[in-house]
Design a protein around this nucleic acid. Structure first.
Length: 427
RNA sequence: GGAGAGGUGGCAGAGUGGUCGAAUGCGCUCGACUUGAAAUCGAGUGUACGGAAACGUACCGAGGGUUCGAAUCCCUCCCUCUCCGCCA
């Protein structure tokens, strides 16, 4: 949620920053207008309310001192009370409607990009900031795409998954299933060793949780919904962990809070029908180990860098070549002020593909979820900052292993770091 | 799913129409007493919004209603607990 106070006090500067994403002039003007109307009604209303409270007290006093209810003095006060009530009954619905309208509109405005986020209109202008592991790039010229090698090895099956569910689902068989399980354990072990507390959250989440993290109201198309229950299938553990502390005030001494979670993620992938139709890259259901931090605003930049390193550490441990790019203002996700994507090398595609996205959301999600912290001795509370990143997407990691570790004889080596988890060296 | 009980401040717990943002206890903060501590005593101790401030408004699970006035009465919903049923 954007900071209305900040917008009100400095609308031009606010809009200029927001427009680095794309043009939001219109909704922002609307918000400012609604805010003004709402505030003027509120002022009016609270004055009436004050008088009404006063009347209530006066009547109470008189009745207590023995004045009868039908005494003219009391009757006059009651009449005035009734008049105020009539006025309030007009103002209140107006104010309520304005507030609802304002809130609905505000929920559709994305976060302001950080001042350090590179400028740009689209993903073309994202900035590569790092490349790692050139020495691990495969030299084998005849690499099969991971879905082909996977089916050859009998560890992936897409066809039968269509029978079970739909397209864009997969079943893992034998060593494939074991590999997935090994990767999850490997990632969780590494991240807990790095100081993250593991959470296994509900895989169904309610509307409030999705709204708090920013998936709703704008991206309803992207999630699967259980209509009868106000529950949605989790699109990412970010949603669940973000709401883990929703509506809480956290003692500043307890910050930062570092969490990691393994969960399946469910996404409708609406609007990507032609893209990545084969393989593990874009499925309706995939596994992910997520990193999430609740931090003091002063530390969020360092925490962001550290989180990125924690995600990179997995790729490095698996010796998978990757690069890091920083998203430009035009490509930034809805809730983020600054994002780094990690992209792993996929030989069959001949390019790097996203395997992790590490974002600093500033206080945006904290506002939407009302997560605050309190510093001892200081008056009031502040919104904390939230950060999230994949550490990593499991399916895509599998794809990367199947391709990068392919041998000329059609077998696949198991990355050394993973061997103890899988109990074998070759697939 | 059926039957019953209940949701009040950091916690415990009173309050069934009137000056209640809410008794009391515990906790916490500051102060006094003390060589120090305990005990005791005194003062303070929620959040949000508006306002330069004084102060005002809202909040007793959520939303509506009755009333001059609602923590208290009525309606709807949510959640928790106990018993029964079902179930991994």
């Amino acid at each position: 949620m954007i900071d209305l106070k900040q917008l009100r006090e400095n609308p031009d500067q606010f809009l200029a920053r927001l427009n680095l994403r794309s043009d939001y002039s219109e909704p922002i003007q609307q918000i400012l207008a609604l805010d003004q109307q709402q505030r003027s009604i509120e002022m009016n209303r609270s004055q009436l309310q004050a008088r009404s409270n006063e009347i209530g007290k006066l009547v109470g006093q008189k009745m207590k001192s023995g004045v009868k209810a039908d005494d003219p003095e009391v009757q006059t006060l009651r009449d005035e009370g009734n008049q105020i009530k009539a006025q309030l009954s007009e103002l209140e619905p107006q104010e309520k409607e304005l507030k609802a309208e304002l809130e609905a509109l505000m929920l559709t405005i994305p976060n302001l990009p950080s001042e350090t986020t590179p400028l740009g209109k689209s993903e073309e202008e994202n900035v590569e900031v790092k490349r790692w592991g050139d020495e691990y790039l495969p030299t084998n010229p005849d690499i099969l795409p991971h879905w082909e090698i996977g089916e050859k090895l009998g560890i992936l099956n897409f066809e039968r998954s269509v029978k079970i569910a739909q397209s864009r689902f997969v079943s893992l068989i034998g060593a494939g299933a074991a590999l997935e399980r090994a990767l999850i354990r490997f990632m969780i072990d590494r991240q807990t060793a790095a100081g993250y507390t593991e959470i296994s959250p509900p895989f169904l989440v309610n509307t409030a949780s999705l709204t708090a993290s920013g998936q709703l109201p704008k991206f309803a198309e992207e999630s699967f919904k259980c209509d009868r229950d106000d529950l949605w299938l989790l699109p990412t553990a970010e949603v669940a962990i973000n709401s883990f502390h929703r509506d809480e005030v956290i003692d500043a001494d307890l910050l930062p809070l570092h969490y990691c979670a393994y969960t399946p993620c469910f996404r409708r992938e609406a609007g990507s029908y032609g893209r990545d139709t084969r393989g593990l890259i874009r499925l309706h259901q995939f596994d992910k180990v997520e990193l999430f931090k609740f931090v003091h605003p002063d530390t969020s930049e360092q925490e962001h860098q550290a989180l990125l390193q924690n995600a990179e550490a997995i790729l490095q441990a698996l010796k998978l070549p990757y690069r890091a790019i920083e998203l430009c203002t035009g490509d930034l996700g809805f809730s983020a002020i600054k994002t780094y994507d990690l992209e792993v090398w996929l030989p069959s595609a001949g390019k790097y593909r996203e395997i992790s996205s590490c974002s600093n959301c500033g206080d945006f999600q904290a506002r939407r979820g009302n997560v605050r912290f309190k510093e001892a001795g200081k008056k009031g509370t502040q919104f904390l900052h939230t950060l999230n990143g994949s550490g990593l997407a499991v399916g895509r990691t599998m794809a990367a292993i199947l391709e990068n570790y392919q041998q000329p004889d059609g077998t696949v080596l198991v990355p050394e770091a993973l061997q103890p988890y899988l109990g074998r060296e070759v697939l």
